[in-house]
Design a protein around this nucleic acid. Structure first.
Lengths: 219, 219
DNA sequence: TAGATTGTTAATCGATTAACAATC
DNA sequence: TAGATTGTTAATCGATTAACAATC
């Protein structure tokens, strides 16, 4: 691999790498051993030149005239993306969305290990969801002191997001997956914050639909 | 408004419009009536020049030397994005994520009206979640024939996505919000498909975290 | 060797930034 | 009028595309 730090990789490339990775896993489970950029292109809906250019960003993984060895490419992508190291995760806010995420099968593929979930509702404290214990939010600070946690997932009401996020400083947490519509800023650059705003997605589809309907009428 | 069709608006702008909209709503609820691009910038984490440029894409909404009238700008964005028209929606797959979405408060802001949810598990057929009735998936075709539905939300297992999507042709549906990791393609351009892949988000945060940790070590 | 497919280079395209003129 | 902030223009930057040389 050309370079093991990859500090300036645009997020657009990272997102596509994840797509390639899934596509390779699928191809492998079908017994395929080699794949061409044009195949990846069809399966992922991304142009073959983009696929090749993205990959060369990290090294030369292909065999000219043949394509890519699926096992090799797959494990390279896993190393690039850090999918082969376990990440210890807590979830804050075990409501509907939080529960759905605790039960979400996709987390295992990213090597996420849930240590605990936090909530305020007394009736669920002490229970567990998908083997993840639910603790009272009051225990958060102490928990973070005695456990090395890398990622926090925020599924609390939006108006609580800021307060909760402020409690995540000065501990081992390096990434926040923010599902609230509050825009959290990592003022000091200590965190990587990824905002996933479902309401925004809804508004975007609302606009794009409008456009589609209009195009239709014009025809 | 300069132009009422807006056919070639990049998705990046649309996503930001949604952020501006939320920010305006918040400012309005604080009793503010006018807002400057630099304020929007701070609240949304988007540069003021970008804010202004995005808005001029659709018209001139500001008052030089003053800023933007919140009510006017807000309703203009609502019109641009189609937030002021009701969209009839069905949800397919009332599992954990589906249930969370049916209970998600953000849908009302986008003027989404859920007509029904579909599933295969007999034990929940006939019940309802948040007043939305759960019907058997066998009833989907008939339902679409007798109801005008604009959007389908897919929260079925990924391997079912393709099959379900194929049942959505030849009806009124124009938009699909795909929460499965299957990559659905709108081969004929009849649909607008928005893929929201949570696993991908996890892998992206996994990479970005790795980068953050490394930067930290280097310091 | 011939065929195929990668990886690279150069050209195009679009988005972001910076500077400033217009104007409330 | 002076001060402030928008909207526009031009410059920069980065991402995508297309063509093709390298090579398995």
């Amino acid at each position: 691999m050309r370079n093991s730090s990859f500090n300036n990789v645009p997020e657009s490339i990272v997102g596509r790498l994840a797509s390639y990775h899934r596509c390779l896993k699928n191809a492998a489970s079908n017994g395929q051993t080699v794949i061409k950029s044009s195949d990846i292109s069809k399966l992922c809906g991304i142009k073959a030149t983009v696929v090749r250019k993205d990959l060369t960003h990290f090294g030369e993984f292909g065999i000219k005239g043949k394509g890519y060895n699926i096992t090799t490419l797959s494990s390279n992508i896993e190393e690039i993306m850090g999918l082969n190291t376990e990440k210890r995760v807590i979830l804050i806010g075990a409501g509907n969305l939080g529960t759905a995420l605790l039960k979400y099968p996709g987390f295992s593929g990213a090597n996420f290990k849930f240590l605990a979930a936090f909530d305020i509702r007394e009736e669920i404290i002490g229970t567990s969801i998908n083997s993840v214990p639910i603790l009272h939010i009051d225990k958060l600070g102490a928990f973070l002191k005695s456990n090395e946690v890398q990622i926090a997932i925020l599924t609390v009401p939006s108006q609580e997001a800021e307060t909760i996020a402020s409690q995540l400083h000065n501990c081992s947490i390096k990434g926040i997956l923010n599902f609230t519509s509050a825009i959290l800023k990592s003022d000091d650059g200590k965190f990587y914050i990824r905002n996933i705003d479902l309401s925004k997605e809804l508004e975007v589809i609302s606009f794009c639909m409008k456009k589609c309907l209009k195009n239709k009428e014009e025809k």
